[in-house]
Amino acid sequence: MEWQTYMMAFLVGGAICVVAQLILDFTNFTPGHVLSAFVVAGGILGGLGLYDKLVQIAGAGATMPISSFGNALVKGAMAEAERNGVIGVLTGMFELTSTGITAAIIFGFLTALVFNPEG
């Protein structure tokens, strides 16, 4: 819990968001395009083993942005592939990301039950 961890989380997390903001402002891509691209980029970096290095340096600065979702998918698939070969790519895919997706579905559903859109 040192302050350096927090500073790195702030700097790296902020920097990733700036990249997205610049793409949004300079091009006509929508947030949907940019987020999809970030997930793909996170996946590729994960496959090369680089994303984990970033996580070690930046902590939540690397795990909170959506690119970590791509990384987690790839890591799940690769870890299970080590044990079960090609089939493992299918079975391990969501091993590490189930928290995020489950949480999003559950909280999304509950919020929709409780609240109404403001307009």
Binding site: G70, V89, F109
Partner: peptide, 29 residues
Amino acid sequence: KMFMLAGSVITFGVVTAFVIGLIYAIFIL
């Protein structure tokens, strides 16, 4: 409609992970 916007993120994440996982399983392991 829940995944109307977020669906593309999941789709592209899974496709990427599948391709990379396959390359890893076939060529590297």
